[in-house]
Design a binder for these strands. Structure first.
Length: 419
RNA sequence: GUGAGUGUAGCUCAGGUGGUAGAGCCCCGGGUUGUGGCCCCGGUUGUCGUGGGUUCGAGUCCCAUCACUCACCCCA
């Protein structure tokens, strides 16, 4: 038997309801804030990610699904969507249409990693990007929207962790300070961190080796070495968040794995996700558009892991029911024909109606089926009803039933639903 | 890429020291020749992940292999 390949999975109808719930709340929330959806291809030129995310990042170095197409061009299944959105923004000259563009997206991403709880090779992200303003109000308002979104899913309160990672003005100098702190301690660091020391010492903050964590706890933090502009930006973001009454913690060790982040960086973690507890992450990326050959347009955004979001939904989440309103039973072939007609009429007036052509099944079996489907009503069309030109409408909650004609079906259904 | 754990019915799992497989749920039928849920009765479902080895005999022991899960790494 051919099975799904490693790291991908099917989302079956029982589970998809939660996904629709999340996606509908996302669209509704984001659109309230003026965001509009953008859909980009799920594969792009490999070069886009190499340049956008950064050659040295783990994503680019070892986690991309890269393959040649039939003409030998190197393509990559998108591992994230900020670079593709930036590419589309540039390609369509969107900065000429409006100064600030607010975009959201949702869809599958792909990373070649060993699967584990909360981490699939094909996973889904819901994200937003604000292009065109570096005002701290953008950071704060987008974070406020994020908190509102999670709140509307019933995932609250969340732990919002914030930091500033500086910009090209202050980060190089800070990196040097950090390096000078770490070099004398090099021998006590783990193998990974010694390598990071040469490539990107900031990533040592991510290390989970206890001894290294102790070393890093004493390390100079970039927060104390921001340039005036970055410090001012960070302070203004915090002021706005405080004005919103949004709780957050500052984590001086928070660094992000993508090269393009500047100034504001944040993430939200959630319990119950196992070791992969990051629910979402994001930040400011003021240099990315320019890096990709576009105008000097600043950006801010975040991406939520939809799989992890669904896992984090509380049992009380208001996920809409998918049960049919009316289950139509036709007994015998004549009954099935009549059932089809009745069902068509019900659907025409907006009722979720299911009719299954099982003329040989006993009424008992069909009622059991209706009960399993949690149908609110059953409409029965058997020999008796067809002879008399009527049908039997049964309310499943209490078993009460009435004899109705086709032309009054709608009205009687409404009455019984209210009673 | 590294490590650990687990693979028995559609699902969740039992199967001391080797003697050719079970339960619950689900599904189907009946108890009511046209009335669901609860209850009762009956029934269907297995290359015991795969390949090899030891043995008179392997779900059980050994080796290999594959898959899945969790963790490391990293991230959503």
């Amino acid at each position: 038997m051919v099975e799904a390949v490693k790291g991908v999975r099917d989302i079956l109808p029982d589970e998809i309801r939660a996904w629709h719930f999340v996606e509908e709340r996302a669209r509704d929330t984001f659109e309230r804030y003026g965001f509009r959806e953008i859909r980009t291809p799920i594969f792009e030129s490999t070069e886009l990610f190499a340049r956008g995310i950064g050659e040295g990042t783990d994503i680019v170095a070892k986690e991309m699904y890269t393959f040649p197409d039939r003409k030998g061009r190197s393509l990559t299944l998108r591992p994230e969507n900020t670079a593709p959105v930036a590419r589309a923004y540039i390609e369509h000259q969107m900065h000429r249409r409006s100064e600030v563009e607010r975009l959201y997206y949702l869809g599958p991403m792909f990373r070649y990693e060993r699967p584990q709880k909360g981490r699939m090779r094909q996973f889904y992200q819901i994200g937003v990007e604000v292009l065109g303003s570096d005002h701290p109000a953008i950071d704060a308002e987008t974070l406020e929207m994020l908190v509102a979104f999670l709140g509307r899913l019933g995932i609250a309160p969340v732990q919002l962790v914030l930091n500033s990672v500086g910009d090209p003005e202050c980060r190089p100098a800070y990196k040097e300070i950090l390096r000078r702190y770490l070099l004398p301690r090099r021998e006590s660091l783990c193998e990974d961190c010694r390598r990071r020391l040469d490539t990107n010492p900031l990533r040592c903050f991510d290390c989970k080796v206890p001894a290294d964590r102790d070393v890093m706890a004493q390390a100079p933090a970039i927060l104390d070495h921001l340039c005036d502009a970055c410090r001012g930006h960070f302070e203004r973001v915090r002021e706005h968040l405080d004005a919103f009454g949004i709780a957050y913690t500052i984590d001086r060790r928070l660094v992000r794995g993508l090269d393009y982040y500047r100034r504001t960086a944040f993430e939200v973690t959630a319990p119950g996700l196992g070791a992969q507890n990051a629910l979402l992450g994001g930040g400011r990326y003021d240099g990315l558009i320019e890096e990709l050959g576009g105008p000097a347009v600043p950006g801010f955004g975040f991406a939520v892991g939809e799989d992890r979001l669904v896992m984090s939904l509380p049992a009380t989440a208001a996920i809409p029911d998918d049960a049919p309103e009316v289950f139509v039973v036709g007994l015998g072939e004549a009954g099935v024909s009549a059932a089809l007609q009745a069902a068509r009429r019900l659907r025409g007036s907006g009722h979720r109606t299911l009719v299954e052509p099982l003329p040989g099944k006993s009424l008992k079996a069909q009622l059991r089926r209706a009960n399993d489907l949690r149908a609110r009503f059953v409409l029965i069309l058997g020999e008796e009803e067809i002879q008399r030109g009527v049908m039997t409408l049964k309310r499943m909650s209490d078993g009460s039933q009435a004899t109705v004609r086709l032309d009054e079906l709608d009205r009687r259904l409404g009455e019984m639903a209210r009673a």
